[in-house]
């Protein structure tokens, strides 16, 4: 019977001890002054940039507590696959609870899953963020679609580029619409871009580009649509290793 209070005291002391010790042992040398329980994206996710380059906008995440209020001084660590660099890789949240980092993508084109982790009250909280690296062909496709396609296919308007999406009787699909495009074969995509919508029994509002864009250019646009697809595109018929 006498042992129980002692055991409780030991447990309590260890808990306090580890609780107090935990923040000061972060690998980055930063001293967090608070912990949060949730982490959300503020801006900078789902960007696309050429391989090896820094994303145009920094990645900003926000750490919140249980009530959803922002937490200042919480540690956020960024991790990514090999080749992805963060500047800085670990940062304390600012007065509005936000942690900002510049992301340099790796040298392989494709989808990158990066993560932001904050220690949390009881266990670390991790947020997965997707960014896209464009290889040469995909970047060429990106430039071409920006000139020829995005005015109709991108519903978002900006001051520099007003979208024509709302003016069309039949709505085109945004290039991120993986549910639609992933079902189409490369041959079908080539055909609809080169010969226009009627080639696949679709709207004539999609004009033919076969006399305007070279086959290389059209392939580049298809490569861009494939890499931007959300959910990601998996080519049918690929046989993977048995490892």
């Amino acid at each position: 019977m006498t042992r129980r209070p002692v055991a409780c005291a030991v447990l309590l002391l260890t808990t306090i001890g580890t609780g107090c010790k935990h923040p000061s042992t972060s690998s980055s040398g930063l001293k967090p002054t608070a912990t949060g329980s949730a982490i959300v994206v503020s801006s900078g996710d789902k960007q696309a940039a050429p391989t090896g380059s820094v994303l145009a906008n920094p990645l900003v995440v926000q750490v919140n507590d249980d009530q959803g209020n922002s937490v200042t001084g919480a540690l956020v660590e960024f991790h990514g696959p090999a080749g992805v660099l963060f500047d800085p890789a670990a940062v304390l949240t600012d007065s509005s609870g936000q942690a900002t980092t510049a992301v340099r993508l790796g040298t392989i084109g494709g989808l990158y899953e990066v993560s932001a982790t904050t220690p949390g009250k009881s266990h670390p909280v991790t947020l997965q963020i997707a960014e896209t690296a464009l290889g040469y062909q995909q970047q060429l496709g990106s430039i071409l679609q920006d000139k020829y396609c995005s005015r109709c296919h991108d519903p978002e308007s900006s001051a520099a580029q007003v979208s024509n999406y709302d003016n069309l009787a039949v709505k085109p699909h945004a290039f991120t619409d993986g549910n639609t495009y992933n079902k189409m074969s490369n041959a079908d995509m080539l055909s609809i871009i080169q010969h226009g919508g009627p080639a696949l029994n679709r709207s004539a509002l999609m004009p033919p580009y076969g006399n305007t864009l070279s086959p290389t250019d059209v392939q580049a646009v298809i490569a861009y649509i494939r890499v931007m697809a959300d959910p990601p595109y998996r080519p049918a018929g690929t046989v993977y290793g048995q490892k």
Binding site: R151, V162, N164, D166, N167, L168, L205
Partner: peptide, 21 residues
């Protein structure tokens, strides 16, 4: 209007067409 669907980008009739490019 039908075969080449020019109204997707051009406005020929300001009352019905909305093409803006």
């Amino acid at each position: 209007y039908s075969k080449y669907a020019c109204q997707s980008c051009h406005t020929a009739n300001t009352n019905t067409d909305k093409g803006y490019i």
